[in-house]
C-alpha cells in the first residue's frame, strides 16, 4: 500500500458517499444515470467474488463489502425508493454496446482462463467504460448539478491515482498488471473532457454547463 493507492481508494470511497448523500439529502436521483450504476454494481459483484475464497486483509474485505453493498443500495434508491425522480428519458445509452464487446474481450484477453479470473478481467474492462452512460447523459442534458460533478470528479480521480500507484509499484516492487494498467488508462482518458470542464467551471463556482 502506497500513498497513491490509499488516496485512490479514499477518492473512490468519497465519490460513492457524495452520490449517496446527494440522492438521500435531495430525495432525488435526477441527473444520475441508472445504467451506469447498474454497470458499476456488475463491476463490483464480478470483481470481488474472491471475498468468499480468499482473505487478503481486513481493509481489503471491508472495502469490497462497502463497494458491493453501496452499489446495490444506489440501485435500490434509484429504481425503487426514488423511482419517480429518475430521469430515464435522458438515460438512453445502450449498455449492450458496452457489455457485449467487454465480455468478448474478457474471454479473449485474460491472465488465466478460469471462471474467477475471466470475471475479474471482465470487471476491469467493464469498469473502464461503465461511466459512459453517465457522461452521455450529462452531454445530452448539457449540464450537471454541482454535487453530481463533485461525484464524477472523485470517481475519475480514483483511477488516475491508481495509475500513479502502478507507476510506483513498477519502479519499487517490479509489479505490473498490464490488463489493469491499459484499462485504467482508458478509464482515465474518458474523464479528461469532464476534468477540463470541472476545473475551468465548477472550481470557479460556476455550474457545469456544456458549451453550446
Amino acid at each position: 500500500m502506497n500513498v497513491f493507492r490509499l488516496a485512490g481508494d479514499l477518492s473512490h470511497l468519497l465519490a460513492i458517499i457524495i452520490l449517496l448523500l446527494k440522492i438521500w439529502k435531495t430525495r432525488s436521483c435526477a441527473g444520475i444515470s441508472g445504467r451506469s450504476q447498474i454497470l458499476f454494481a456488475l463491476v463490483y459483484t464480478t470483481r470481488y467474488l474472491d471475498l468468499f475464497t480468499n482473505f487478503i486483509s481486513l481493509y481489503n474485505s471491508v472495502m469490497k463489502v462497502f463497494f458491493i453493498s453501496t452499489s446495490c443500495a444506489t440501485i435500490y434508491l434509484m429504481y425503487v425508493k426514488f423511482k419517480a425522480t429518475y430521469d430515464h428519458n435522458h438515460d438512453t445509452f445502450r449498455i449492450g454496446f458496452l457489455l457485449i464487446p467487454v465480455t468478448i474481450l474478457g474471454l479473449l484477453i485474460n491472465h488465466d482462463f478460469t471462471p474467477l479470473e475471466v470475471l475479474w478481467t471482465f470487471s476491469i474492462y467493464l469498469e473502464s467504460v461503465a461511466i459512459l452512460p453517465q457522461l452521455f447523459m450529462v452531454s445530452k442534458t448539457g449540464d450537471a448539478e454541482t454535487i453530481t460533478s463533485h461525484y464524477l470528479f472523485c470517481l475519475g480521480l480514483y483511477r488516475a491515482l491508481y495509475i500513479f500507484n502502478w507507476i510506483y509499484r513498477y519502479y519499487f516492487e517490479g509489479f505490473y498488471d498490464l490488463i489493469a494498467i491499459v484499462a485504467g488508462v482508458v478509464q482515465t482518458v474518458l474523464y479528461c473532457d469532464f476534468f477540463y470542464l470541472y476545473v475551468t467551471r465548477v472550481i470557479k463556482g460556476k455550474a457545469l454547463k456544456l458549451p453550446a
Partner: peptide
Amino acid sequence: LESFKQKDEL
C-alpha cells in the same frame, strides 16, 4: 503472470 490470489488492489 500474477495469479488471482495476489490481487490486493480494489
